[in-house]
Design a protein around this nucleic acid. Structure first.
Lengths: 217, 217
DNA sequence: CGGCTTGTTATGCAAGCGTATAAATACGGG
DNA sequence: CCCGTATTTATACGCTTGCATAACAAGCCG
């Protein structure tokens, strides 16, 4: 029988298929670690056959790299969105930035699993290392610029060396809290991480930041 | 006369063999990621045949777990050593603790590579996750106890909730700086990370800590 | 409506994986 | 001195992996 009129597969545009494969890759990595992201598992989740992957990507490594780039982009975009709705005061911008990086969309076990998997691999894979370095430095520059604006507003302009030290420390706070939140999200209440981070950054810079939890208002 | 006098292998005690196999595993993980730690590669580096692994470990998973436990122990031991030579003042102890975790033996690309490799897998491997959780909570408890002593000395005893928040933040600072230092050690001068961390912790707690860089001595 | 392009599947292959099993060897105790 | 036993090696098996290739079919264009 000709299995009635049902088609066996549908053709899709290149953009759609690439996006689906990347998303399926992220799902697989998040679920079973980077070693669980085999071409067969990815294809199964994407609803296509395994061979199709090599029709859109030269090899599995390229798919993984594209997937990691997508994660980096998603995270930095999230942070930039928080800045797009630019509040009037620099202090508010900095607080919003910190909050965006420690909130639900970024603090996510799935993203962390990807990050850890790729970070571990970046030591032996120069291409992945480049992707990482790019997103990382962009993030730190953003922090440095925000801190500079905040200190200037407070009438305490900082020299470049001090600005750098502040950016490094604040970046570390955000990174560290992000990791803790991703690995043990159940241990922290909603917004608790962001509150801790903002309080810590405020103390670090010696300024008052809006949105501090328990500010005794 | 056994052909010629040369022995084909030597018998070693169980302790020695297990230690060698664990060390070989760490070498493999650090060099090529956790996926590069195959039983054959590990055995080759340890100078034994592949089959011997299963004579000392029920399976490869057990070897990996033992190897990760060794890494965690090594890191926490390093920090505890800094506390063993207990200085008089709590502030000095806290500073020494921070400095120990951001100095040469702990800030190391190889250890980071190991950490990242295992962390990535811990999401899908409950045994590894348990090993991690154990070492992690021990570290945080240490920080909390140190912070409590420092605040008490300063005449500003903190309630448990505040203590917890401080411990979380300081832990994050150390973690974040540790990662930055491991991944891009060339970007930081000697002792710079420790200096940034101590300054940040001092600001966070509102106390003066010894060993601050640029303290105008 | 029939051929053409090309997205898509199906199948196969060589390599590498972890593991199981039996043979070989070192080395201490009778 | 030689035997017994635990350690170590050697070999093989079944499975999965990433990748290559050929058959297939969906949708467009004349």
């Amino acid at each position: 029988m000709t299995t009635n009129g049902r088609r066996k597969f549908r053709r899709e545009g290149e953009g759609r298929r690439r996006r689906d494969l990347i998303e399926a890759t992220l799902d697989c990595v998040a679920e079973n670690g980077i070693e669980g992201a085999t071409v067969r598992a990815i294809a199964l989740r994407a609803g296509v056959s395994a061979g199709l992957i090599r029709h859109y990507f030269p090899g599995k490594a390229d798919l993984l790299q594209a997937a990691y780039a997508a994660v980096v982009k998603r995270m930095t975009d999230q942070a930039k969105d928080a800045l797009a709705a630019r509040e009037a005061r620099p202090a508010e911008r900095l607080a919003a930035f910190v909050r965006a990086n420690l909130g639900p969309p970024v603090v996510d076990a799935r993203i962390f699993s990807l990050w850890a998997g790729f970070i571990a691999r970046a030591h032996a894979d120069t291409a992945l290392a480049a992707v990482h370095r790019e997103g990382y430095l962009g993030f730190r520059d953003e922090v440095e610029s925000l801190v500079g604006a905040v200190l200037e507003e407070a009438g305490r302009p900082a020299d470049t060396a001090m600005l750098r030290r502040h950016a490094i420390a604040i970046n570390a706070i955000i990174d560290g809290l992000w990791i803790e939140g991703c690995m043990a999200s159940s241990l922290f209440g909603e917004g608790e991480l962001a509150g801790i981070a903002i309080a810590s950054v405020a103390a670090q810079l010696g300024v008052d930041l809006p949105g501090r939890a328990g500010s005794g208002h």
